[in-house]
Design a protein around this nucleic acid. Sequence first.
DNA 1: ATGGCTGGTAGAACCAGA
Length: 265
Amino acid sequence: MSQKISIASWNINSVRFRLDIVERFLQEVGPDVLCLQETKVVDRDFPAQMFRKLGYQYQVLNGQPMHHGVAILSRVPMVADNRHDWQDNGEARHIGAQLECGIRLENVYVPAGGEAPDPETNPKFVQKLAFIERMTNWSSQLDEPTLLVGDFNVAPCETDVWNHKQLLGVVSHTPVEVEALARLQQSHNWVDLGRKFIPEPAHVFTWWSYRAKDWKASNRGRRLDHMWASPSVAERALEHHLFEDCRNWGKPSDHIPIMTTFKVD
DNA sequence: ATGGCTGGTAGAACCAGA
């Protein structure tokens, strides 16, 4: 008998502040697995009970005070796997899990990289590039069927931003970042599921700034959130969804959830 | 061309986001 598994990813920008919309998403969409980034909570204060109540009894957490933080919540069996610190600075930006269906799941929150795309003056930009380079070294050693998801903080394609030329000098879409991400992609022949299902030149965004008066009207978005699959996992991808409505829900995150459904044996 | 907003934590004329 053939079965399916749905896996979602969402930069939630504080899981405690957005409990209402997380609950709504789980009730209305009900992915089997939810990967969160920017949970902004230490593990002992993570709202584990709310997820448990909704059936997400398997939980792996990697939080820290104030910033960053990632989590995987699942209603199908999984066990915790490695957590990598690719900057070696203690920041909680990655957590992995082994799903019982055989897929290895890696949930990552790549550093934003600060304001200026200039390695000379902006150490955060240097850190972001180093983070991606270390991920590339890790990825080139991977030989398992893996799904890599999260907020990569890079919009690689020209149609991943509202205005390619205008954003060439804006951190998230600079050529040096796009090239670093391309090396990461090549290191495992990762399949970009977002673009497998919605090929260029269609514009695809997963993030819209809070600063616009009307995010939808101005539509100055970027595709920062991604799901990359090992080739063998990509072959099993059945559907891919972007939940743009969530950007309009009460107290929204500036990112929307994305989700892919896979065939499993 | 600029600035616009958000949450956590401390109690900021902050930090980080992107």
